[in-house]
Design a protein around this nucleic acid. Structure first.
Lengths: 143, 143
DNA sequence: AAATAATAGTTGACAAAGTCAACTATTATT
DNA sequence: AATAATAGTTGACTTTGTCAACTATTATTT
C-alpha cells in the first residue's frame, strides 16, 4: 500500500477517534461503564442471549462479564433463566427497569450526537451520511 | 436533527469503532498502553513539550502523566530539562532510544493498517480516502 | 456404561489504568 | 511582603480488566 494512503487513513483515524471520544463522553456522566453499556445494548437488541453469546459478540472476559451481570441482577436490570436443555447456561433478558435504563442511555447518546453533529445543515448531514454509507460499502465488500 | 440521521451516524460510529479496535490491537502486543503511545506520539511530533502541554493536548490527569513520564525517564526514553525561565516546568524530549521506540510502534501501526485495509484495490483506496477527506472537511467547517 | 474431555459460568487473586486531593517548589499578582 | 496561581509530584484510592482455578453440567471416547 502506498505510504500516502496509510498516512491519510491514520489521519482520519485520529480525527474520528476524537469524535468518538466526544460522543462517549456522556457515558462518564452516567452510572455505567462503556462495557456495561455495550452489554445492555446487546441485551436490548437481542433479548435472551447467554453469557457466552455476549462474550462472542463483545470479546469480553467471562469473569468480568459474570460480575457485571451479577451487578445487573442485583440492581434488577436483568433476569437470568436457566436453560431447560442445558442447565449450565442461562438466557438473559432485560427487566422493564433494564429496558428503561437502556433507553435513557440511548436517548442521552442521541442527544450527544445532536450536540456534536447538530450544527450541520440538512444537506451537509445528508452528504456526510452518504460518505459514511459508502465507506461501509467499500470496507464490507472485502470481508 | 432527523431521527434517521442520528441512527445512521450511530451505525457508522459502531462500525468505525470496531475498525479502530482492530487497529489498536497491535498495541496490546507492545510494551505500551494507549495513553503511553499517544504521549510518545506527541513528543515525537513536537519535541520539547512540557507536561502541561501534554495535558492540554491529550486531556490526561497530571498525576497519571507524571508517573508515566517518570517511567519513561527510568527507561531512558525521555529527557527532561528544567526551563531556565521557569524552574517549575521542564521541556521533555525523546532520547535516541525513545525515538527509535516510537518509530517501531509507528511502523507496527502502519503494518496494522496494511492488514486491515490492504485488501482494497488502489481505486477503492483512493475512493475511501476521498470520503475520509470530505468527512473531515464537512465536520471541520463548523468548528 | 464408565471414564474423560469439553463447556458455561463463578470466584479469588491480582495487575493495570485512572482519579482525586494534598503537597512542594516556583512564579505571578495584589 | 503577602497572597494567589501554576507546574509537577506523591499517596491513597477506585475502577477496570485479566488470569487461572474451580463447580456443575453436558458431550465424547473407549
Amino acid at each position: 500500500m502506498k505510504q500516502s494512503f496509510t498516512k491519510e487513513i491514520r489521519a482520519f483515524n485520529r480525527f474520528y477517534t476524537n469524535i468518538i471520544g466526544l460522543l462517549d463522553r456522556h457515558i462518564l456522566d452516567s452510572n455505567y461503564s462503556l462495557p456495561e453499556v455495550r452489554i445492555l445494548y446487546e441485551l436490548y437488541h437481542h433479548s435472551g442471549l447467554t453469557a457466552s453469546d455476549i462474550i462472542a459478540l463483545l470479546d469480553i472476559d467471562k469473569g468480568y462479564l459474570s460480575r457485571i451481570l451479577r451487578r445487573f441482577e442485583k440492581h434488577k436490570l436483568v433476569n437470568k433463566v436457566t436453560s431447560s436443555t442445558d442447565k449450565r447456561s442461562a438466557s438473559i433478558k432485560l427487566t422493564a427497569k433494564g429496558n428503561k435504563e437502556f433507553e435513557n442511555l440511548d436517548s442521552a447518546s442521541n442527544k450527544q450526537i445532536e450536540e456534536v453533529f447538530g450544527n450541520l445543515t440538512e444537506s451537509e448531514c445528508t452528504a456526510l451520511i452518504q460518505k459514511f454509507t459508502e465507506i461501509q460499502q467499500i470496507l464490507n465488500n472485502k470481508k
